[in-house]
């Protein structure tokens, strides 16, 4: 007979869902279900530290101590025809962001600066519904120029929704990973985006996966979603089995429909990080945008000790981050090794 979850007690003295997670996720590597993730999200705050400690153990057991460091850059900023309500780059909202293109020398320089931080991953991003021929050729020329610069950093792209032909082209260019965020739970997506569907995004992700590229897919928390929807999102991501999940915390952007939303509280952000780790024990979980505002320096460290095993260093696409060196120092203080390029080849 199996004990009901609240009657379980682990060797570590944990009870309830934490004891269940220890046996199921830590020992067997089986991610939590939707109901279980929801239980984690509803744990009393007195159990947050235990939750983070367990999430960290899970990360160490199933992913190891290394941290993947990445830099990102926007090659085409602003003027996007889509209406993602969190995004300052949508051309449909009165935000102060103006359209801009980064030229090839600028891209090469950004890739070089990223590699110099010790990062192994460089993601080229464009604010588009999907790439047109101009953008595809800019990316092709950019990657060629980065290689000619003697930079062997791994290159990822995030260019919106793709056709099969474009997927194949990116593979041929040597793009090893593709980022395309599902952004939020399927049930919440229509509240966040109306110009395309969650399913359209899912289709691009499947094509990317079938083509053998690594899938990077995450989202943003703090967009008015419920705990139930956070749990729903965690298991929907788990079902996709992405190589990487970037976690963003909403920074309310001037001129967007979400301009006046409150940022989520640090403890809630940490709880979500840990819950996602317990839903996806083997996935690379990356700190992306918004952690500076939501968590600050101390919270970022707690996140690194609560399930996170990858970070974006330096600035983001339109927002600034803290200097890359501050994060590298943090990893050094935490004695977490930075994943080396040789490991990935």
């Amino acid at each position: 007979m199996t004990a009901a979850p609240h009657q379980v007690e682990s060797a570590a003295g944990e009870q309830g869902i934490l004891a269940v997670a220890r046996e199921q996720v830590l020992e067997r590597g089986v991610g939590l279900s939707r109901e279980q993730v929801l239980e984690v999200l509803r744990l009393p705050s007195g159990q947050l530290q235990d939750l983070l400690a367990l999430a960290h153990e899970v990360r160490m057991r199933w992913c190891g101590p290394e941290v993947e460091v990445e830099g990102i850059v926007s090659v085409k900023t602003g003027g996007c025809p889509e209406d993602c309500h969190f995004c300052s780059q949508s051309g449909l909202f009165p935000t102060p962001v103006r359209a801009a293109w980064l030229d090839i020398p600028g891209l090469v320089k950004a890739a070089r600066e990223t590699a110099e931080t010790g990062a192994t991953e460089f993601c080229i991003v464009a604010a588009v519904r999907g790439p047109d021929t101009r953008l595809m050729s800019q990316v092709r020329d950019g990657i060629k120029a980065i290689r000619e610069d003697g930079n062997d950093i791994e290159i990822a792209c995030s260019l919106g929704m793709l056709t099969q032909e474009q997927v194949d082209e990116l593979v041929a260019m040597g793009v090893h990973r593709y980022n395309h965020n599902l952004e939020t739970a399927r049930s919440n997506f229509p509240n966040v985006v109306t110009t395309h569907s969650w399913e359209e995004r899912w289709d691009t992700l499947q094509m990317v996966k079938d083509a053998g590229m690594e899938v990077c897919c995450g989202g943003i928390v703090g967009m008015g979603e419920t705990d139930e929807q956070r749990a729903e999102f965690a298991v929907q991501l788990a079902e996709l089995e992405p190589h990487e999940v970037p976690m963003n915390f909403l920074i309310p952007q001037q001129g967007t429909p979400y301009e006046h939303l409150e940022t989520i509280e640090g403890p809630d952000a940490l709880r979500i990080v840990a819950a996602f780790r317990l839903a996806m024990p083997r996935t690379m979980l990356r700190f992306a945008g918004g952690r500076e505002l939501t968590l600050g320096d101390l919270g970022a460290e707690q996140g690194m000790l609560g399930g996170i095993n990858a970070i974006i260093v330096g600035n983001y696409l339109t927002n600034l981050g803290r200097p890359a060196q501050a994060d590298l120092d943090m990893l050094n203080d935490l004695t977490m090794p930075i994943k080396a390029l040789s490991d990935t080849i």
Partner: peptide
Amino acid sequence: PQSTLEPPRYCAQCARRMIVQVTPSGW
């Protein structure tokens, strides 16, 4: 505090909206 995460968007001398490029190490 959020503004410390924002590059300048308007010209300090004429208030025109500027074309801003953020890169990993600057803007």
